[in-house]
Nucleic acid binder design. Structure first.
Lengths: 199, 199
DNA sequence: ACTAAGTGGAGGAAATCCCTCCGTTCCTTG
DNA sequence: CAAGGAACGGAGGGATTTCCTCCACTTAGT
């Protein structure tokens, strides 16, 4: 494969991740090509179908999440609290909210390697959270899956819901959510949210 | 206005609320008419544009939320905890998640009465939450608006994201969120979430 | 029973999105 | 540095979805 072609391919995957995150799993493919600064044909040549593109995104994202969880587990000895916070922040940054449909909708036709990656990631994240529960940072009456789902729900595509406001809002909501996950209450960073006119 | 026509109009508003909640603010109007058991023409006769329909939904929903907040304030003396929980449950039931775009996207062209209703509801809910903060049920470092937004985010349309699983998931996530809002930690109902294959 | 208000849904118009095709560009290798 | 082929871009026809009008028919109300 030609070097520049490979680079474009990766650019496409990155663009797809952003566009999926911003506009949902159904975003027009043209928008992805445009964001990648690439012709629509290039997209189709690399990923004949939307699913294949989504799977490519899933592969890299799942790998990243897994790596984050591994690192989290490593850091658990020293500073579990920091490890947890860093993990969540990074996962939020990845905004896998829009990815869920691709991983769930057609569970059966999921390519084996993606499915495998999914299981692996799930297992590692579960380990990590169980560890946090052992240490007493996360309440016991919560299933790891729920935590992931909560983060996913809170980081789902906004579709211009509130534009600027959201930038500060989501991290705040995540923090509240995290506080709700603790056996004790946890402090919150000060609200940056402007007294907007929303609602 | 003829009696049966009025009834159909209300049916349409109810149907619109459900469909908007299920499929988002962009749901096809045909789907709404179908759910109301009514021809598409009837919808257009009553609501010439999508916005007018959305505004009608907003009017009734805002009024309901306001009434809930008023009741919450009333019950605050006896049983603030129960009042809060009942309020949240009811608001979750209303699923105003999908309504937000209609109230935010074109803030300027919002019909005066809707805008007014919005302000009124906002004020009452804010009062309610401030009261809860005074009583020590809700942490002080959170803005009422954020709470509403959190609930809205967690109750946004799922679009078949996980179907059954979600039914149990959302209330659980709300509970975690509420726990995160408390100065202390709060207990959680037991997880009903099946060990699904999701993610 | 009469009338006017109200209804349903077919179907053309419009918008969106998909995806192929082919002339052009630019890596790469010798 | 030139030749060959890999890779590109984007126009545009086709398919799909959604909109929304139009009019023959139905029904509430007096």
């Amino acid at each position: 494969m030609r070097a520049d072609a490979l680079e474009r391919r990766n650019t496409l995957i990155k663009a797809a991740r952003v566009v999926f995150a911003d506009r949902g799993h159904d975003a027009p493919l043209d928008a992805i090509a445009a964001r990648a600064g690439v012709g629509i044909a290039t997209l189709y040549r690399n990923f004949p179908s939307r699913d294949e593109l989504a799977h490519a995104v899933a592969r890299t994202t799942l790998a990243e999440v897994r790596e984050l969880a591994v690192r989290g587990l490593d850091d658990c000895g020293d500073d579990p609290e920091g490890a947890w916070r860093r993990f969540v922040d990074a996962v939020v940054e990845l905004r896998m909210g829009a990815l869920v449909p691709a991983l769930v909708n057609s569970l059966d036709e999921l390519p084996p390697d993606v499915r495998e990656s999914r299981e692996l990631t799930k297992a590692t994240v579960t380990d990590f959270i169980h560890r946090l529960q052992d240490v007493g940072l996360v309440r016991e009456d919560v299933v790891p899956l729920e935590i992931i789902m909560g983060i996913a729900m809170l980081t789902r595509p906004h579709v211009l819901m509130f534009e600027d406001a959201t930038a500060n809002l989501v991290p705040r909501l995540i923090t509240v959510f995290l506080a709700g996950l603790r056996p004790d209450g946890a402090a919150l960073p000060p609200p940056i949210l402007p007294e907007s006119d929303v609602l």
